[in-house]
Design a binder for these strands. Structure first.
Lengths: 243, 243
DNA sequence: CGAAGTTGTCTATGATAATAGACAACTTCT
DNA sequence: AGAAGTTGTCTATTATCATAGACAACTTCG
């Protein structure tokens, strides 16, 4: 507590500054990934010493709310999205449960041909006609993952247009009469983001990604679609049930 | 902030102690006039040094919440309510301006007959039917005053029931179409509390009270009601405009 | 009166808070 | 390459926070 200038309140100055910045993050004045004002500028707005601001930022950084980058600035750290891996996980439910607003956006929908591996996953013959949907999912305004989805073009005609309208894979399947579905075995690996995904995820080159490959089946066990998703590793953590 | 024992929270220890005691006063664990535990005892319950407790008590004393008596103890000081005397003072506004929560409670509503003095104040004939309302007013949970109000039973039928529901004399008048009113001449005297009022005000026998007699008029100058209020002198101070 | 318990005041010590200035190390942009 | 702006680190100073011990001054009760 400074208490050299104002009456002693019993609350340290750096705490007041930290609380002020945290409020700014909470109410959206500073969004995830945003750059905070410089330490000097913050010091001036709160009328305190720069070191006091650094004390406040250090407290926020320790809690993972902000991240300082030397020479560049201090950034709001997107809080990691807890992503439970179960057979019935829906992205919108997961994001909503975290109190954030889920969004989906279609990047591209193109025709494709089944490779031998895709054909095996989907229970089709090699060379069968497929629809390939490239989409991005966000929580609030933060990109979480990009995913490539393949569906049978014969079973789901015009799937691209339907996804563009509904922005949800669950709703797309419902449109074709699939009331419920379950996720089969899920493979998780890690890698480094490529240039295309880096741009889409608003991620710096060289940063790690989590790669998830999974196939969804209907309740009779017939494969519906197979997915290849790339998650920004710094924005998500997967939770696996133990027991 | 101690920060010698626990992780630095940015809030001073004495502040935590002071807040704890203030909460105790606010929620009634320590009532007005009560003796607080000794400084040593408080220090033990909060596991801090006695000097830290003294710092907390000093902060509370400066705000008028407690009062230390050397050799005896520290007592909860009923903070005196600043009560400005103007022609348009409303109890709820005064209490609310002090950051406290105003309450009103009906004690008793009975039929009465106008004495000669009451009749003169209210512009009625001696023996006219009146409604007599006995009520108590509180700030937070502290009784401030009990007042006896007389209204014309003919002009304000069932006034007792209306006051019991609204708990506010202003709202009662509004219910009968009186949009605004003003206070006439106010007489202030002092006396000693009697047993009945002592119990209602939670006041020790023999303590002083401020007695206020006033009559409220509508904007045309017609008398609406007349009041006889007894204030706990140690909990209120009247402010009169100078100039 | 005398003992016990209370608040008031003094000195002392170490840790924390806040300020101030200077410079290094790094990033970004021209 | 260079300038400007950013965070990181160092030294130094002053005020506050918290603890510790001792004793005075006072009240209450037996």
């Amino acid at each position: 507590m400074s208490m050299q200038d104002t009456a002693s309140s019993g609350v340290a100055l750096w705490r007041l500054v930290a609380d002020g910045i945290e409020r700014g993050i909470a109410d959206g004045r500073f969004a995830a990934g945003d750059k905070l004002p410089g330490e000097m500028e913050i010091a001036e707005t709160y009328r305190v010493n720069r070191h006091t601001v650094r004390r406040a930022l250090a407290a926020l950084a320790e809690r993972g709310l902000v991240r300082a980058e030397r020479g560049s600035g201090t950034y709001v750290e997107a809080q990691k999205l807890a992503y439970p891996l179960r057979s019935r996980t829906r992205f919108s439910e997961i994001v909503g449960a975290g109190g954030r607003e889920p969004h989906g956006r279609l990047i591209e929908a193109t025709d494709d041909i089944a490779t031998r591996e895709l054909a095996r996953e989907l229970g089709l013959k090699t060379g069968a006609p497929l629809m390939r949907i490239e989409a991005i999912r966000l929580a609030d305004r933060t990109p979480i993952c990009v995913s490539t989805t393949w569906l049978s073009a014969e079973r789901f005609p015009d799937a691209g247009a339907v996804f563009a309208a509904t922005r949800s894979m669950t709703k797309l399947l419902a449109h074709y009469g699939v009331r419920d579905y379950r996720r089969g075995a899920t493979r998780i690996t890690a890698g480094i983001v490529d240039a295309t995904d880096a741009s889409r995820l608003d991620l710096a080159l060289g940063r790690p990604i989590l790669v998830v490959d999974a196939t969804d089946h209907d309740l009779e066990g017939r494969p519906l679609l197979t997915k290849h998703s790339r998650f920004a590793a710094e924005r998500v953590e997967f939770l696996v049930e133990n027991g």
